[in-house]
Design a protein around this nucleic acid. Structure first.
Lengths: 203, 203
DNA sequence: TCACATACCGAATGACATTCGCTATTGACA
DNA sequence: TGTCAATAGCGAATGTCATTCGGTATGTGA
């Protein structure tokens, strides 16, 4: 009954927020500027979203899903497991986490400044983890489940690390080194298995 | 000439901030509450520190140096390289980065909310990296320099990842898994070298 | 003892996120 | 097709901070 929310207004708010978050970051973007860019009033934004935090999450969620889906398509398209592994690590860390024209920083800033009441739905987190887990399976066939699990967690951890640094740390630390270092370690894991098999063959 | 700053007031401010940051986090701690706890006025805090950000850094710096120094003593005290490696990874990630009664979250929140003018001295970052690098040397003797370099970067990255998650991510992700996963990968790196040496001895 | 730089203080100021009181619309139902 | 209650939408508060300002008082170097 009574008046309905306009899908158009909602979209306008999200699009304005999306653009402004990328341009100025979450913290420097004000609700007032989002409202202005969306062609509505500051207070009306709160009819559509309960808080600034909620807007950030509503922007981040579809952004990340799109990125991860594209990454997965890219990984799957690779011929060899080695290529899939490199594509996965590079795409996830350099392509998504370190992307300065993306929404990763939005999430980091939103989470860092979240107030006690600011909750978020864990679905996105779980979904992302399951996609990465799946990609790792295709990049490391014949690996044992514990190993795949461990790698999934390590990659998520690296994602967070890169995300935090993206703007917050100084240039003294080069992200590229870290990504290469991680890749090197994963390869070592793979190679060990290969070597172990050579030494103690058992199929 | 003229009046001097009181070392006592400075110390009182830092001690109050230290305690409040741990209790309530950086963001939820107000300059006003720091001043009250330090027994001075809000505005006088600005005579000693240019900004809230600067206070955070002044608190974090000695805290981290103490922690890292203690870790290094602990690592050095271990008998075998294996024990040193485990002590290093566990102490750094679980003991320092994930310590909820420490100042890690302070730094994350301070960095996330830093304004353009908020600069910090990179000395601490460089010093920390060099200590970790040194500890890795003692945990992986005979490793090649590139490998040690890569591990140092990976550990710093993991540190940041854990730090970000400390309060910001949900329980859906268990940090412990990630730490174990990382340890497993480093061991794989070590083992590979051992296996490689067995296969192609050359000493 | 004098003079001045400045520690120290209480009261602004300016930015925000969020809330409030009110008006205008609109969708369900008679 | 008219009525009306829920609520979209708006402009003006509110409340919370970090930071700044204007003034006063004190310690220090001369």
């Amino acid at each position: 009954m009574a008046r309905q929310k306009s899908e158009q207004v909602r979209k306008a708010i999200l699009e304005a927020a999306h653009r402004l978050f990328i341009e100025k970051g979450y913290i420097a973007t004000t609700i007032s500027s989002i409202a202005r860019a969306a062609g509505t009033s500051q207070s009306n934004v709160y009819v559509y979203f309960a808080s600034k935090f909620e807007i950030a999450f509503a922007v981040f969620d579809p952004w990340l899903r799109t990125k991860i889906a594209a990454l997965e398509a890219n990984v799957t398209a690779q011929e060899t497991p080695e290529e899939r592994l490199r594509t996965l690590i590079d795409g996830l860390l350099r392509g998504i986490a370190a992307d300065r024209s993306g929404q990763t920083l939005t999430l980091v800033q939103a989470l860092a400044t979240a107030k006690p009441g600011d909750e978020y739905n864990p679905d996105l987190l779980i979904w992302t983890m399951s996609r990465i887990h799946h990609m790792i399976g295709s990049a490391l066939p014949n690996s044992d489940p514990a190993e795949r699990e461990a790698l999934t967690h390590s990659l998520m951890l690296a994602f967070d690390g890169i995300a935090l640094r993206q703007n917050l740390r100084r240039e003294e630390i080069k992200d590229s080194h870290s990504v290469d270092a991680l890749y090197m370690m994963v390869r070592a894991l793979v190679d060990r298995r290969a070597l172990t098999r050579v030494q103690e063959p058992r199929d």
